[in-house]
């Protein structure tokens, strides 16, 4: 006979089955394909040969023999560059969004809706179009430079476009809504009386921020960081448009391998490495924050 408990389980099972199947088919299956491909030999004209082949990773990590494949440290360098870009993006969006989220959370509900709408507004146009707008802003004869020149703040145009600075600006721009939303949710839920209590007990603004406000809104900080960090590592559109030749990121590399070099196994190997690194970084970051949250 079904006790209420087992009935509840059946019910849950019924609810979870569709999403499990969906995830299994559309997420795990492609993932498995990528992992398997990364250990196969590239076909001569794209595609794969079904033969075990570890030089894809050898090419990346240095055990390539120079005959089958050539080891190039540049790949790891690009990976590191992409990671640091992602970290920079996280920090920049965090610093930009936190005060704004705090400010908006103190407005009346009507104004909150207005600002939330404004923040999601960029999603209404295509990413590429928006990035080309940045191109126009940042280029030597662009809006930014002509304004600064006109005001006499600089004597010759700033070389921003096609540098890492441009990529960071573009990335931060693209990622701001993703950082903002979890932060806003967290800060909006913050109990204001906690801040008053802290101040009442003698803590100044800075102390109140670091001892009460930041720890209390940590879930939003962690959530926003994760959501921004992961797509930032592999993003290839922003470096493509704003980064120029020097701004090549790991995402561009993967894109090239799949689309122009047609070396799917190597592209897959790169993807697997990105995933492993991102997973590793996330695990360290989240466990550290959770542990800190518990300790303090």
């Amino acid at each position: 006979m079904a006790t209420p408990h087992t009935r509840e389980r059946l019910f849950l099972f019924g609810l979870l089955t569709p999403v499990t199947l969906l995830l299994g088919i559309f997420f795990l299956l492609p993932l498995a394909v990528i992992v398997i491909y990364s250990w196969l030999m590239p076909g001569l004209y794209g595609g794969v040969e079904w033969e075990f082949y570890h030089w894809n990773y050898g090419r990346l990590f240095g055990w390539a023999d120079g005959v089958m494949e050539i080891y190039e440290p540049i790949y790891l360098k690009i990976l590191l560059r992409s990671l640091s870009l992602a970290i920079l993006t996280v920090l920049l969006t965090l610093v930009l969004c936190y005060p704004v989220a705090f400010w908006i959370s103190r407005l009346s509900p009507r104004w909150q809706v207005v600002f939330l709408f404004l923040i999601t507004l960029p999603f209404f146009t295509s990413l590429v179009v928006r990035l080309y707008a940045w191109l126009l802003i940042l280029k030597p004869s662009g809006v930014l430079n002509s304004t600064l020149l006109g005001m006499g703040l600089i004597s010759e145009p700033l070389e921003i476009l096609f540098t890492r600075t441009a990529v960071v600006i573009g990335m931060a721009y693209v990622m701001i809504p993703f950082m903002f939303m979890p932060l806003f949710a967290s800060i909006g839920n913050l109990d204001r009386s906690l801040l008053e209590a802290s101040s009442d007990l003698g803590a100044g603004r800075v102390q109140t921020f670091f001892k009460v406000m930041l720890p209390q809104t940590m879930p939003g900080v962690i959530g926003g960081s994760v959501i921004v960090f992961i797509p930032s590592v592999g993003n290839f559109v922003v470096p493509d448009v704003l980064g120029g030749a020097k701004g090549l990121m790991i995402g561009n590399l993967v894109e090239q391998q799949f689309l122009s070099a047609r070396n799917w196994p190597f592209g897959s190997a790169l993807s697997v490495v990105i995933m492993a690194v991102v997973l590793g970084v996330m695990l360290i970051y989240v466990t550290r924050l959770v542990r800190e949250g518990r300790a303090s």
Binding site: D191, S193, L194, E196, V212, P215, Q216, M218
Partner: peptide, 8 residues
């Protein structure tokens, strides 16, 4: 509301 710091 007591306003205790729940993370401490």
């Amino acid at each position: 509301s007591y306003a205790l710091f729940s993370h401490m």
